[in-house]
Each structure stands twice: as structure tokens, then as C-alpha cells.
Amino acid sequence: MSDADDAVFLGKASDGRLIRRPLSPHIGIYHWPLSMVGSILNRATGIAISIGTLLLVWWLVAAAAGPVAFAGVQAFIASPIGLLLLLGWTLSLFFHLFSGIRHLGWDIGIGTAKRSLNPGALAIFALTLGATAAVWIAGYAVFGG
């Protein structure tokens, strides 16, 4: 077997036929259990809110710059794209927050039982949706009222 055959995962079956040797299973193979979705989302939301810091910085810098600059941020956030970004930011923030607290629990040995992994992930989803809904409903109450 040459290095090239190794590189393309070429092998011989027991009857001598050439076959592609199996790769180790990757995300395309799995059923996506909730625990796995939660783990992936923890990273994805972490990346999302890292990018979302741009909005925080813009908001603070505009508040310091003056009324005109601040009106610019306000207008952007109130636009459809701004609201969509803010919704994504809220969802990501709450998911990463609750999931992060769960991770801190794992670090001190709380909640690591195999049986609790999927229900735990489900609880994080529920908390995220609940907190996001609560904040947006409260937001519209403050803003509209």
C-alpha cells in the first residue's frame, strides 16, 4: 500500500476487492442528540455574541459622541435588520449564559450524570426561549407604554 492509497483511505476487503476504508464517524453520521446540539450551540452562540460586542461598543461610543451619533445607533437598532440582530443577540446571550452556568456546574462536578445530559440541554433551550420572550415582551411594554 502506498502513501497515496492511505491518504484516500483505499483498502482491500477480505475477498481482495478494493474498497474505501471507513472514516471515523463525524457529525454527518450522528443522530444529533440534544446534548450534542447544546454543546455545538454553546460555541456558536459564544462566537455570535463575540461579534455582537460590536453593537455594544458602537452603542457606548455613540452615547459618548453625542445626540446625533446616538440617534444613528437607535435608528439602526429599531430597523428590521437591527431588531433581527438584537433578537439573535438576545437568544445567543441567554443561551450562552445558561449553558455557561451549566458548564460551571460541570466543572465542580454538578450535573455530570449521563442520564441528566439530554434533559439538561432541553432545560437550557427552554430557559433561553423563556428569558428571551420575557425580555422582549418587557421591552415592548417599556417601549410601547
Binding site: A63, P67, F70, Q74, V135, V142
Partner: peptide, 9 residues
């Protein structure tokens, strides 16, 4: 959340 829509000042 408590200051949504508040102006710059």
C-alpha cells in the same frame, strides 16, 4: 431594558 428608547442625555 429599563431604558429602551431613552434619548442620549
Amino acid at each position: 431594558l429599563a431604558r429602551l428608547g431613552a434619548d442620549q442625555p
